[in-house]
Design a protein around this nucleic acid. Structure first.
Length: 516
RNA sequence: CGGGGCGUAGCUCAGCCUGGUUAGAGUGCCUGGUUUGGGACCAGGAGGCCGGAGGUUCGAAUCCUCUCGCCCCGACCA
């Protein structure tokens, strides 16, 4: 007998959430830590396939809202960063700097080993982009002459680098993949509208594609993007009840246009020039981390059908050598039929697992990877014109024998059901851990674990009336490891009341939570 | 950068305290056989300069010093 482990992933979520997360990434074969490069990751095919889906679907949404893709340099002259003081300061501590442009081989006379020594010092060092406001701003300054050149709606898919202290796969890596939208507008209102519009795109994508309900809102001044006038965000709750910022949209005012010189001939006044109003907005591979922490269970990842690299995996059951060919053939034929069908307006993504390994191994591999639907197809099924269907949102041992025609007819509905079920479950979880709190005593209790030595999963989103100062906000962050995630904008959070800290009336609601 | 933990087979780890033939286990991998609606079973096999450097010693995975890297908790952050 093989070891009869109840679950594929250990430890369980409830035992050790951070470790569980790492084990899920491993079990699902999504990515691994780069062996010799600090803080970087190798994204494996299943993980990259997920990113490709996210990328493709978001990209379509950007195009539908009038944006175009472009690409800008990886390296940024240090002087560019200096142009916007707040921005420079914000990123200064996490920049990788390029100082040389060649290597020279030097042979050690004693050991005979060859060492490559940097030489060719640059007169002005570059930083590897932590974000591209400054380079793109410089380009925009060249591209914009007249109000007729606006709005400029550009997006870039790229990698960026931020030398983070404590990297974690997908959640915070030194190098990560993302998209960064950068737009320039004639008026403040237009730019604000763009900032809001892209926030709604992110909200929609998170909800309808990733099955993650997010809370939208504005960051407080303390939490704002360096150099922004206004930072909007989507905040998700994951299964340890912590918050994770899954996307941001910034209104930059004229800060960057003044720094970069994005100036245009005015529409209203002859001979006058004005500075453009700019925005930037982005989501990253962190979405994958968020997705995992939101949906995965103690058997591994769970992929929402819309973004699953494969939505259906067919596992041929080949008990006898003489029927093997027939079964494989039938599996391929079924896959071909399914691929003609559509889900969410796109051909179904179907994979036939032809590997020469045991059927149980295959089943568990795909459970761990989180494929929404598994189909087992064997000689008896072919004979009976049926398929054995298992769903990732049900137990690993559950399977239903369904006539093939019925399955083909219902497959789209089943995928929708799984997609909707994931969203419903995540929403229920979030709302169940979203608590209105009206006193500091209650607040402290909410965010204090019962067992300080081995903190259990506790807390959640605390909705409080707040009118404190920036300093008071910082103090709370320091004392309780809790920050204001956002000032939520949804109707359900409207209304004012008594500030939880100062007691001042007329304070509006904010959401406090521990966060990633 | 502070506090804690840890680097031994592809992976998970035992051995270290109390130094002593040829460094182990499970799993994975390869081969053969038995199985076949299933994370199978049996047998055989490959795979390690015990993270790296230095030291103590007749002898170091084990003791000492330095160093590099990883993980967790903080500070910083998408």
């Amino acid at each position: 007998m093989a070891k009869q482990q109840k679950n594929a992933v250990s430890p369980a979520r409830a035992e050790d959430f951070p470790e569980w997360y790492q084990q899920v990434v491993r079990a699902a074969d999504l990515a691994e830590n780069a062996q010799d490069v600090r803080g970087c990751m190798v994204i494996k095919p299943w993980g990259y396939g997920l990113w490709e889906q996210i990328q493709r679907q978001l990209d379509q949404m950007f195009k539908d809202t009038g944006h175009q893709n472009a690409y800008f340099p990886l390296l940024i002259p240090v002087s560019y960063l200096e142009k916007e003081a707040e921005h420079a300061e914000g990123f200064a501590t996490e920049c990788a700097v390029v100082t040389h442009h060649r290597l020279e081989a030097q042979k050690d006379e004693e050991t005979g080993k060859v060492k490559m020594v940097p030489t060719g010092k640059l007169t002005e060092p570059y930083v590897i982009r932590p974000t591209s406001e400054t380079v793109i701003g410089a380009a925009f300054a060249r591209w914009v002459q007249s109000y007729r050149d606006l709005p400029l709606l550009i997006n870039q898919w790229a990698n960026v680098m931020r030398w983070e202290m404590r990297p974690r796969l997908f959640l915070r890596t030194a190098e990560f993949l993302w998209q960064e939208g950068h737009t320039a507008h004639e008026t403040k209102d237009e730019a604000l509208e763009e900032t809001e519009k892209m926030l709604r795109v992110y909200e929609t994508f998170a909800r309808d594609h990733l099955a993650i309900p997010v809370i939208t809102g504005e960051k407080t001044e303390n939490e704002r993007f360096p150099g922004a006038e206004k930072t909007l965000c989507i905040e998700a709750m994951v299964q340890d009840r912590k918050a994770i910022q899954a996307g941001t949209s910034h209104y930059l005012g004229q800060n960057f246009s003044k720094a970069a010189g994005i100036e245009f001939a005015s529409r209203s006044e002859e001979g006058a020039t004005e500075f453009a109003y700019t925005t930037s907005w982005g989501v990253s591979t962190r979405l994958i981390g968020t997705l995992l922490m939101a949906h995965a269970d103690d058997d591994g990842a769970i992929m929402p059908p819309k973004v699953a690299p494969s939505q259906i995996v067919i596992i041929p059951v080949t008990p006898k050598e003489d029927t093997k060919e027939e079964v494989l053939h039938a599996a391929e034929a079924l896959a071909k039929t399914l691929r003609k069908d559509e889900f969410d307006g796109e051909p179904l993504r179907v994979h036939v697992d032809r590997r020469d390994v045991g059927g149980g191994t295959k089943t568990w591999d795909w459970i761990k990877k989180g494929v929404p639907i598994r189909i087992e197809l064997g000689p008896r099924d072919i004979e009976k014109r049926s398929v054995a269907v298992s769903r990732r949102d049900q137990g690993p041992k559950e399977k239903q024998f369904i006539p093939k025609e019925d399955f083909l007819r219902d497959v789209g509905n089943v995928l929708s059901e799984i997609q909707n079920g994931l969203l419903a479950r995540a929403t229920e979880f979030r709302d169940g851990n979203l608590v209105e709190i009206s006193s500091m005593e209650e607040f402290v209790k909410f965010f204090t674990p019962k067992n300080p030595n081995k903190p259990e999963i506790h807390g959640g989103f605390a909705v409080c009336h707040w009118a404190g100062s920036n300093e008071e906000e910082e103090k709370i962050a320091k004392d309780h490891k809790v920050t204001i995630r956002c000032i939520p904008d949804a109707e359900r959070f409207e209304g004012t009341g008594k500030c939880i800290l100062t007691g001042a009336e007329g304070a509006r609601k904010v959401i406090f939570a521990k966060s990633y």
